Simulated scan of single mutants.
Amino acid sequence: MTTRTLYLLCSAAPPVFDVAHAIEDAQTRGWDVCLGLTPSAAHWLAGSLDGLAALTGHPVRWQYKLPGEPDVWPSADALLFAPATFNSVNAWALGLTDRFVVGVAAEAIGKGTPVVAMPCTNAALAAHPAFEQSLAVLRGTGVELLYGEGGFVPGPADQDESPHFPWQLALDAVDRAGTAMA
């Protein structure tokens, strides 16, 4: 089986603590995984970053490289942004690329890389009108959004633990998207 490269980008939401399992699952599906995090997600996983780099075989990134530095990741065959928080989804839709993972996700759209995203927010934030507008913008660019029925369903506000995060659905969608482009 030919190995394909998956950029797995994560925001700081509780499902990020299960990212090692998602990486292992993606690897068993034939993906070479490169992990990118928002700065907050990198802070949350600070004690695991070396282990995650060892697991993927690539540096875990949360900052842009300096001009002239070589790119340390191979080119992506697909991109999965999960969990993608309210803030990340809105920044991505607006093209606000001050955070590495949002910049990579925005650029993937322009490169024609298959992109799947699973937003992860609570029902109170999801009710904000900007969120639905952002989802519509991303859908309009061809991003496959796994949100609502058939994806992540938001739970109530003021709850630290998110409802079950369907990593399997996200990886299934990436497999389909990666196969369609092959």
Rank of each mutant, 00 (worst) to 15 (best):
W92C: 10
G95M: 08
G95N: 06
G95S: 08
L96S: 11
R99H: 14
F100E: 06
V102N: 13
V102A: 03
V104N: 00
V104H: 01
A105H: 06
A106L: 00
E107D: 13
A108I: 04
I109A: 10
I109E: 03
G110W: 05
K111R: 15
T113F: 06
T113K: 05
A117Q: 08
A117Y: 01
P119H: 07
P119K: 10
C120V: 05
A124N: 05
L125H: 13
P129W: 02
P129N: 03
F131P: 02
Q133W: 02
L135K: 09
A136M: 05
L138F: 07
G140N: 12
T141L: 07
G142E: 13
V143Y: 07
V143L: 12
L145P: 10
L145K: 09
L145W: 09
L146V: 06
L146A: 05
Y147Q: 10
E149P: 08
G150N: 12
G151M: 12
F152M: 10
P154T: 11
A157N: 08
A157V: 09
D158P: 00
D158W: 13
D160R: 14
P163T: 09
H164R: 10
F165V: 03
F165A: 01
P166F: 04
P166M: 04
W167R: 08
Q168F: 02
L169R: 13
L171S: 05
D172L: 03
D172Q: 11
A173T: 09
A173V: 10
A173F: 10
V174C: 05
V174E: 04
R176Y: 03
A177C: 07
A177P: 08
G178P: 06
T179Y: 08
T179V: 13
